[in-house]
Design a protein around this nucleic acid. Sequence first.
RNA 1: GCCCGGGUGGCGGAAUUGGUAUACGCAAAGGACUUAAAAUCCUUGGCCUUCAAAAGAGGCUUGUGGGUUCGAGUCCCACCCCGGGCACCA
Length: 799
Amino acid sequence: MNYPHQKIETYWAKKWVQDKIYRAKDSSSKPKQYILDMFPYPSGEGLHVGHIEGYTASDILARYFRMKGYEVLHPIGWDAFGLPTENFAIKTKQDPHQVTQKNIAIFRSQCQRVGLSYDWDREINTADKDYYKWSQWLFLQLYKKGLAYKAKAPANWCTGCLTVLANEQVINGRCERCDSLVEIRNIEQWFFKITAYIDRLVKGLEKLDWPQRTKIGQINWIGESQGFEINFPLKDKKINLPVFTTRPETIPGVTFLAIAPEHPLLEEIVSDKQLIQVKNFLEKVKNKTLLERKTGEKKKEGIFSGSWAINPFNKKEIPVFVADYVLMDYATGVVMGVPAHDKRDFQFAKENNLPITYVFLPDSIKKPEDKPYPDEEGKMIVSPFKGMDLKTARQKIEAKLSKFGKKTTYFKLQDWLISRERYWGAPIPIIYCPKCGQVPVPEKDLPVLLPDDIKDFRPKGIPPLAQSKKFVNTQCPQCQGPAQRETKTLDTFVDSAWYFLRFPDPKNKKQFADPKKLKRWMPVDIYIGGAEHTVGHLLYSRFITKVLYDLKLIDFDEPFLKLRHQGMILGEDNRKMSKRWGNVIRPDEVAQKFGADTLRMYEMFMGPLEQSKPWSTRSLIGVRRLIERIWKLKDKVKTKVVKEDEKEKEITQKLIFNVTQYLEKEKFNLCVSEFMKYVNQAEELSALSKKWWEKFVLVLAPFAPFLAEELWKQLKNKYSVHQQKWPQIEEKIKEEILKIVVQVNGKLRGVLQLPSNKSYSDQEILKVAQNDPKISSKIKDLKIKKVIYVPRKVINLVV
RNA sequence: GCCCGGGUGGCGGAAUUGGUAUACGCAAAGGACUUAAAAUCCUUGGCCUUCAAAAGAGGCUUGUGGGUUCGAGUCCCACCCCGGGCACCA
């Protein structure tokens, strides 16, 4: 290896940071581009190759747009609060503050080492009091609007760690840290009312340039379900049980009702006779872990409540069961059991010996077998609807039941649980006063600082902040009497749901950001990050943006106009990279050994950005060869005019044209191919001209910024190559020779080469084909029935 | 189970609105240089053919089977396989 990457790359990396050449100017007459990466958790592991992939892609775009004449905002920060850092701190017995500082220093130097062109003056850190002050402020804005509220709600509870866990900490019903079973417990928690924004969260997706699967992912997560809500009166009690169904036409087939074990009306429904049995059942359900109830075997258990309900459609009496397959957190928490047309109801009916009444049958079925028919199409078989299609029957039944119910829509999405009983997060700015009750901390008193007198960060079942008397005991902002602070902290997803709004004005002490600067930079034009954030971060960020829009604090209601995901980089063995398999590739080592430019270009060359693909050190070496060959090519550059200028002009223009096109479509792998094609051809030339070589170096600059800067310097051009204009092609590339494919019945028979400066009719082309010795021998005996000529491309002879 | 993606050489992957399938790279084989190796450079390269000495010629080929079309990797239908997401959502 002749190219001294180590020396060149470390030199320029340092110089670029010192010279601040990537600074984004707030006031500039240029049009703007805001190109953003999903900021990382600064874990103890350092950046991995997956980060580098997405970050390189956005870096290339940022550099490209700068050269195209845009003022580019390309910032980075650290999602420093939250579980990854906290867990690492606990594991290594350190203070999370120090761990965070250490890790950030590593991440920062790694970013600089691979030449990411961030504006380091805008670096943010969510664990910094100057940042989380505004996370707390955001909470207060939602609180004031009634969009933040406290309620008792089921949460994941780790039976080993004695704490609430975030959803992302629960893996297959078990705690990720101690592997204990996770169960559901009813605990007081803070929520953001994201459900109030459902309609706009769905509708807003339409205008976004996002991957379709991500949009569909959000829509499915929101889970709109249109149906009918019906009240079932109880026989002996003055209680109506509301039931939600998407299939009201099946109501003649209801043979039981099933109510969730947690349902608040349950107490009133249970008869004295059944009381003990129901209590035993509830005890059993309570002891079921999350694993058993939600992800384990779908066995359906239940017990008769002792009450009977009346089917409002046919006045039949049906038993009310308590059943563990009915969920309290969806719809009404009561299900009408139609075993004939629902798989779960069928299973429950079988296990509890309940009758099965068929309401309709699919068209292909004459006689029902002993199984459910959940089909959407068919003919009714119960009077008075016999022979009627399901849609009509549904309308009739809905009309008949209008006194008992109405059309209703339910959603799977629930309010966003934002509180955590953890140390490493922003304290929730609420004070509890024995006189005034729940009082928000006045904005002027922000930030509520995270106490630093906590010795033991380990979660113990109560929030660690409760240990600090200094923190907990305070004054009520209203009556000045003694009061106590909320000890829960904000989920780290709250921090990351607005961080993109801070980059336009990261040091503002008076506002979360100056409206003028927000207007200048927002919204984000291109956002790149992993697809795993589809229903978390990306949904939360859209929600918060809409809230701030409604508060008239910003003038746009979608934060990210264009979104792209990077795929997962697998190990060389095609498995997910993990310590367990010993297949982890460390970007530092690759940069050290082969150079950052090689690492960047290789990761772009691997394949389409969004695709998962395995690492290959051999292919990486192939890209390193490209770097070497470029380094060698520079020796051919002559300051004088060279003979083969025309050829060089042609290949360089083609490179510029193709790379530009591919960049616009984010096809980075094809850009790298174009460089290889260029080098293959340039090597055949005996000399290269300064004029065209310069253009080559400019196109190379976003991809291999170090090599390009060095080559630019050796041309004795003005520093920096990254502040130059993107090269234009002088004229449209014209192919000298027109190639026309000759087919017979669609099969290739030859290729004609004609001067491209004139156009031809099908008859002219046919004549040329007949005169071509190779082709004529194949077509001379054939009777041509039809000629199809696609101008300048193909002529197909049908015989 | 439901919802998304994908199936193209030995491998990663290219292929404008349907118009020369396999660009570019890796690996491989042969050769040059070398005492030797590495590195580098040159050449070959989908598969098949008791067609051919060879240049070549012909046939087949984008998971499988059908269809539309002058022409299908690309469009339509059915099926198989792989990856991802959601999952007792009434």
